[in-house]
Design a binder for these strands. Structure first.
Lengths: 357, 357
DNA sequence: TTGTATGCGTTATCAA
DNA sequence: TTGATAACGCATACAA
């Protein structure tokens, strides 16, 4: 049994489709009696307007989409949760697309765009010309963690100052000399900023910035491989600042393999605060990004955009939190349970406070 | 600048839209010279067919969707990866929908269905009547981890035999007497089967099945709370079989709080093999589900369905792997590094083999 | 080999 | 207060 159409509703209620449409959209005048008949017909037929017809007739699609390069990392779940909360509140459908490993991701995204009114684009998905094309088609776009483009609003997480703070933590609080940065700044502007902040931390202390970065893509296996090489080098490295947690955990494995204890023989820090970071021993010092807030904010900007406010072409910066665990050398070395690891966090630009568990 | 339509292409090439349509879909005869002109016009205008027009005209949408209750757990990423691999190979777009916390998830899914040719529905999304409605609309559906419904093909992970094996492992290999099952069988048929397998394991050893299950939803915080209560009970529990890893990790925290060592004073097992399971100390004994295979298989069934083969209404069962770490009492208690935890795994129905790291 | 005309389900314009 | 009718972009039976 196929779906009922507006024609069947109209005929059952003894009116024209125009009147039905009026009732559906609450537009224009309809006599109370007529409205009543129509509402009944709709209910009796179990009628639901066709999304296709609506969209084709040029109405809003009442849906937005978010595009990720990859649905695997720790990143997307948090962002989606935030965006979805917004979507639910705004009564808008949310579609998700991963371009991962697809041949013609550009065509894919363009098709995806036809389903929605607005799009959230994360790093490594669509840029430059393709982005222009999308905008030309009238899709509203918000960038997430992307290099800022003229005229397109963006949401970013502030990274550089935290990387600087973290670096200074190693240099000053722990009095170290030889740090290394692991990760490829080309991957995204966020990573680039982490590397810059790492340099900033050295400069602010009058230190000569070390070599590097040691470029590798952000996977645990790569962290392991890179660390094996680094640790075999002549110069003894005291701490490795990793571009993300997965790399850092790879370093853990390499350290064990070379008989180095963390943090006694080697200190490590990550970025992202993935679940493993809390359970690894010793607990991984890292940066917690408010991913949900990211998604939520993107949604709010989308709202403004969809309402026709074109003024919001600015970049919104979201703050993070520095999570101090033990891998940097802080705190005790209680190994009996990761869950109980003492841990403190620094919010914003250095305002310290303790968070329970 | 709006998108070009088929009419503009036709007029530029000096033909009718019918001929353009023929070229686009490789259907019917077109003179080589004409085709050439049209192809040129398409390129020059940067024309891309409208997905809307196509869909409305009754063609295939060339897209499938997957619906999750929730995009947060460890479950979805793996399944999506598998399904996406299939989608990429089949040149079909993949949309993802999370119904989480939405008011009218039924309406949401129904709208979602209009965008796609086929749908993969996971547990706790759509059932019964709503499912019937979808099928009535002609959407092809594959169920994932759902109770089997007549006429609808399904993919399931075999749970019961593994739960039985695991239970016997505690009872026989470790010679324990008092086990408990933590988790709510009502959540999904998979959990229900784990509970049944737990009972099976007792029965097969001529033991009287213990009380329980201790019902709680599958979150770490609930595992913690439930374990605190359980461990305060009079009867001493030797092992807790948890319905998933997150519950198990909650138990870890509770154990530490009560001064119990795992596995010396309390044994624990989980289910899912989430990343934390490998990093926790001691490593968590658990069941690894081949989530990617799940997604891939669902895709393959969808292919058959979309090709009009209606015969595939059977249930496909996918095997898992038992991952033995230390929380069950096996192996050493090397605590210096979780990454190096010795670990062995049992594939299929007891065929043991060792997997490196 | 090509073109005309119709339908798909809706909204919107205009007239009644 | 209501109703014809024309878009919207495409595919397709049928005609030429």
């Amino acid at each position: 049994m196929a779906r009922a159409t507006i024609y069947e509703v109209a005929s059952r209620a003894g009116v024209s489709i125009t009147t039905v449409s009026r009732v559906l959209n609450d537009k224009g005048p309809v006599a109370e009696a007529t409205r009543h008949r129509i509402v009944n017909a709709i209910r009796e037929l179990g009628y639901e307007p066709s999304w296709l017809g609506r969209a084709l007739a040029g109405q809003r699609r009442n849906a937005v989409g978010i595009v990720f390069p990859d649905l695997a990392g720790p990143y997307h779940a948090g962002v989606i949760a935030g965006l979805e909360a917004w979507a639910a509140a705004s009564d808008v459908a949310l579609f998700i697309l991963g371009t991962h490993r697809r041949r013609q991701s550009s065509a894919l995204v363009e098709e995806f765009a036809q389903h929605v009114d607005g799009l959230v684009l994360t790093a490594q998905t669509v840029q430059g010309e393709e982005l222009e094309r999308l905008l030309d088609q009238g899709v509203k776009v918000v960038l997430l963690g992307q290099p800022v483009q003229a005229g397109v609003p963006a949401v970013r997480v502030e990274s550089q100052s935290y990387a600087k703070t973290l670096t200074e933590h190693f240099l000053v609080d722990h009095g170290l000399q030889h740090l290394g940065f692991l990760g490829d700044p080309n991957v995204s502007p966020d990573i680039e900023e982490r590397w810059q902040g790492f340099l900033d931390g050295h400069v602010s202390q009058g230190r000569r910035p070390p070599g590097g970065p040691w470029r590798t893509s952000l996977r645990e296996s790569n962290g392991y491989k890179a660390a094996i090489k680094l640790l075999a080098g002549r110069r003894r490295l005291e701490a490795i600042v990793c571009a993300n947690d997965e790399l850092a955990l790879g370093v853990y494995t390499a350290a064990v393999e070379r008989g180095l204890r963390i943090p006694q023989d080697l200190r490590v820090s990550g970025w992202d605060d993935i679940p493993q970071a809390r359970w690894a021993v010793p607990g991984l010092t890292t940066i917690h990004q408010p991913l949900e807030a990211l998604g939520q904010r993107a949604g709010e900007i989308l709202t403004a955009l969809l309402e026709g406010k074109n003024l919001v072409a600015a970049t919104t910066w979201i703050p993070s939190t520095l999570i101090i665990r033990q891998s940097c050398g802080c705190g005790g070395e209680r190994e009996e349970a990761a869950a109980e690891s003492p841990q403190s966090s620094i919010h914003g630009a250095g305002e310290a406070k303790t968070t329970p568990k």
